[in-house]
């Protein structure tokens, strides 16, 4: 008998705490045939903006020690095509659908959130206020607590759906940002986005990425994100989705002990599309070994 993995995160009932991370997950359907959807609780779809965004000049990814630096630039098809083509493709999709939302202005965020409120297939909205790869949006909101609170409030007023906020990792203190998002009405916090980074090709003597700078993901950032999850949980007891370098069940278990109710899998999918199944099974076995009745019992359950 294995311990059930179902858990409620920020108003969304998940059958598994394994969430495919926004960006890596695409629009979900791309991974059909490679990912075992039975192991997945939710998919956080690629950031959607009001109008299509073209993304950055190549190269868009660079390998880093125990990680990956990306500067995709939030390429996406825009709200209209997303609603007309991408959401309908998920009609028979068992995992919950979380839609990541991006914008260059407060009005753009609000407009997209409002439109998604009408979509029955959308189970939650995740505000991306922390992408390091675009100017004039994203991170500009994530780094300023008051700006963040008021953006989240605007979006909160625009939807009845569960609202998650994906925070930036590289701020002097993450707790005021977490509090601001919660004060604005966030139901859960995704902790965190990628860490601003760079790679240089020393033979070409050029930055590897077309955008020069990118965001670091993968196991390299996991200890940093683990601390952020622990800090935010200790200070706020918020519902947290841990996002950063989960490459197996042990990483997921560490995040749960630090205070996360769910974890995202992103970069690991490129090496191992079967990782969602392995993490779900490993987590269930670990919960059982430690005598937890369910996943929520293990959240924040560090020994004193």
């Amino acid at each position: 008998m294995s311990v059930p993995l179902d858990v409620t995160v920020g108003g969304v009932d998940l059958r598994s705490p394994v969430i495919l991370a926004s960006g890596c997950a695409g629009y979900g359907a791309e991974w059909n045939g490679l990912v075992d959807w039975d192991a997945v609780g939710a998919v956080a779809l690629k950031g959607v903006s009001r109008n299509p965004w073209p993304g950055n000049e190549p190269h868009r990814v660079a390998e880093a020690p125990a990680g990956l630096i990306n500067a995709i630039g939030l390429e996406n098809v825009g709200l209209d095509v997303f609603r007309a083509e991408k959401l309908p493709a998920l009609a028979d999709f068992a995992p919950r659908v979380v839609v990541n939302v991006i914008g260059r202005s407060r009005e753009e965020y609000r407009e997209v959130v409002e439109a998604l409120d009408e979509e029955p297939r959308v189970d939650a909205v995740e505000l991306n206020v922390s992408c390091p790869n675009v100017t004039g949006g994203g991170m500009a909101f994530g780094a300023n607590a008051e700006g963040l609170r008021s953006l989240v409030r605007d979006c909160r007023d625009a939807t009845a759906k569960p609202l998650w906020v994906k925070l930036a990792p590289l701020v002097s203190d993450v707790v005021p940002c977490a509090r601001a998002a919660l004060a604005g009405g966030a139901d859960a916090l995704t902790v965190a986005n990628t860490v601003p980074a760079m790679a240089i090709d020393v033979e070409a003597r050029r930055p590897v990425l077309g955008n020069v700078y990118g965001g670091l993901s993968g196991p390299a950032i996991r200890p940093v994100i683990l601390r952020l999850v622990h800090r935010i949980y200790a200070e706020t007891k918020a519902h947290i989705v841990a996002s950063g370098g989960v490459d197996g069940w042990e990483a997921a278990a560490a995040y749960v002990l630090a205070g996360a109710r769910a974890v995202t899998l992103g970069t690991v999918l490129f090496q191992n599309p079967n990782a969602p199944r392995e993490v779900a099974d490993g987590l269930a076995a670990w919960l059982e070994r430690h005598g937890f009745a369910d996943l929520s019992a293990a959240v924040g359950a560090l020994q004193q």
Binding site: G55, P58, R60, F270
Partner: peptide
């Protein structure tokens, strides 16, 4: 040819 990650059109790394 381009740096690639997912191979299935999800991540948009291999842009031309």
């Amino acid at each position: 040819e381009e740096h690639m990650a997912c191979g299935v059109g999800a991540c948009r790394s291999c842009a031309a």
